[in-house]
Design a protein around this nucleic acid. Structure first.
Length: 271
DNA sequence: CTCCAGGGTTTGC
DNA sequence: GCAAACCATGGA
């Protein structure tokens, strides 16, 4: 099926933006995304035309929300014009969108992410999916879904450790136990305001300010949340005199953060 | 081989 | 309250 997308949408930049760790790029230019049990193959045909593997119904029900198409990113970028560095970063990152991903997957993925490089995070998560995720056969490949809480809870400790979790193993097992025993924990958190949601997420061992902000931004669409990691911290030190500028950008701070994060990733020699 | 990674918790003051 | 120490492991 062919669809038209007119707002900012760059598959490669989204895949490389560090929000999702399970996007696969095929040699023919097709991108694969997974969320819950849904799998999408999408390829740019020309200009605003994209070929998608799912039905229009699934596109509208699942993927429109996943890719955050209710938000006008072109307008958001224009509103950054009073900040020179952010304007440049947003220009470089044009096409990035904030993905609305599964809260459980983001919780586990970003606990794993601490003190790991993005390639290491990806391979670690892939091993966990292969170990205890649901196997799905598509027309292109055999894929493993992200494990549900019960599957991770019941996974053998030694086999889980062999996925490269390191010292994060007890954090992961603790989080899996928590969500397995209280299945509505993440769902109920949706009702909380930003401040209370942050504190609720930080109740889970291994979740601090940075990881909680990632979960808020990438799963709960709390676009005021701007995670400060090592790269963002370098930018704050070198471009903003050590003063965190993100609170100044209000409810689009998280989007500004994502443009700047992508800029720092693609211009490592400047930091 | 060494160095560091989308940090967080624990410990010591 | 705040720094500093400590954490396992893979990728570069």
């Amino acid at each position: 099926m062919i669809i038209t997308i007119t707002d900012d949408f760059d598959l490669k930049k989204i895949a490389d933006s560090g929000q999702t760790f399970r996007c696969r790029i095929f040699d023919d230019g097709t991108y694969r995304f997974i969320t819950r049990e849904y799998i999408l193959y999408i390829k740019k045909i020309e200009n605003t035309q994209y070929e998608i593997s799912c039905s229009l119904e699934e596109w509208e029900k699942v993927w429109m929300s996943y890719f955050d198409f209710d938000r006008d990113y072109a307008k958001i970028r224009r509103d950054f014009q009073d900040d020179l560095f952010l304007t440049m970063a947003a220009d470089v990152g044009e096409g990035i969108r904030i993905l609305r991903q599964d809260a459980w997957e983001m919780l586990i993925s970003f606990i794993i992410s601490q003190r790991k490089s993005i390639p290491a995070i990806k391979s670690c998560i892939e091993k966990i999916c292969t170990l205890c995720g649901n196997k799905i056969q598509t027309e292109r490949e055999e894929v493993f879904a992200f494990p549900i809480p019960a599957a991770l809870y019941k996974a053998d400790t030694d086999k889980l450790a062999a996925c490269g979790l390191g010292y994060r193993l007890p954090y992961i097992q603790n989080a899996a136990t928590r969500i397995y025993e209280e299945p509505t924990f993440l769902q109920d958190a949706e009702e909380l305001d930003d401040s209370n949601l942050l504190e609720r997420l930080k109740l889970i061992k291994g979740v601090g300010d940075k990881v909680a902000n990632c979960i808020m931004l990438f799963a709960y669409k709390r676009t005021s949340s701007a995670p400060v990691d090592t790269w963002i911290n370098k930018v704050i030190q070198q471009k903003y005199d050590g003063i965190n500028p993100f609170p100044n950008w209000g409810d689009v701070a998280g989007i500004a953060q994502q443009y700047i994060f992508y800029y720092s990733l693609t211009h490592k020699d400047e930091f």
